[in-house]
Design a protein around this nucleic acid. Structure first.
Lengths: 144, 144
DNA sequence: TCCTAAAACGAAATGATTTCTATTTAGGAG
DNA sequence: CTCCTAAATAGAAATCATTTCGTTTTAGGA
């Protein structure tokens, strides 16, 4: 159990409960995104009781406070990814093996300024994500 | 009924059925994205019979063939938008009034090349969308 | 005009996600 | 080290947007 995670939770104003830490630990160390149910199934044997809603709730709270990030998936189900990179960045996600690579820079802030200058208004958030096949999966058939 | 829509459907290899055209017509002329159910409710009185699944199916098919585009919404429900701009581009969507503005250029192709060069693999699609409040909605309270 | 694949119907199913109420717990205060 | 309280969890049940299915209708080329 990474002590740094407890710290990250404290900074996010969240209690460092064992289950919350376990969820975070499980996401960490993977280079893949995972669904709530998958994480739940893998964590069940670590706890005598662990509800699926607890996993859903924690993942959502962690994403909201920026500790983990959401993946936008074509099947529109929820997937989450833990990223050590604390800088603002984006992801290239493999639709086959679920590997996630960081995208270095995006220059999207300039785009935001341009849009606001032209249309007015306010940009609250942006989504930038590349979907595809990672180096290992490309050429090994279609994505699942 | 815009005759151009029938043509667009033909080009997409889809039959120009009255309902499909009506869905397309309704989306056209708006600068807002709409949900399947909203479109269905507004179209019901134009037809003695119109099933909600029909609206869902058509919107999905139209989006798949590139005639309309999907909006990625924080509530993860489906929304669609008709865009006259046939060039590759992206959108700034207002989370309050649902207005959609085109984003001129994105330079994302260069980013794709950069990512592939670094990590290998293949980019199948990308998502770029700005979420916020349009000029009219900014400063009028929080988004719904 | 015919024919056939495509489209539409609509009731029913689906299933991921959320809600709800009661119970437990983390962690700051004393 | 206790207490206390807000926060977190359990788990069953509900939700509800979306999809499926088998049947009927229709667009549009032959």
């Amino acid at each position: 159990m990474d002590q740094g995670h407890a710290l990250a939770l404290k900074e996010a104003g969240m209690k460092a409960t064992p289950k919350r830490l376990a969820i975070l630990d499980m996401l960490d160390g993977e280079h893949c995104y995972a669904s709530p149910e998958e994480l739940w199934k893998r964590l069940r044997d670590k706890f005598d009781r662990l509800g699926l809603p607890t996993v859903y709730r924690n993942l959502e709270e962690l994403a909201e406070s920026g500790v983990i990030s959401k993946v936008i998936h074509p099947n529109r189900q929820l997937y989450y990814y833990f990223c050590r990179n604390r800088e603002h960045h984006h992801h290239f996600v493999c639709l086959s093996c679920r590997k996630v690579e960081d995208i270095p820079s995006c220059g999207i802030e300039a785009l935001e300024r341009e849009v606001i200058q032209k249309n007015g208004g306010r940009v609250l958030s942006h989504i930038l994500q590349l979907n595809g096949l990672c180096g290992g999966c490309a050429g090994k058939g279609d994505p699942q």
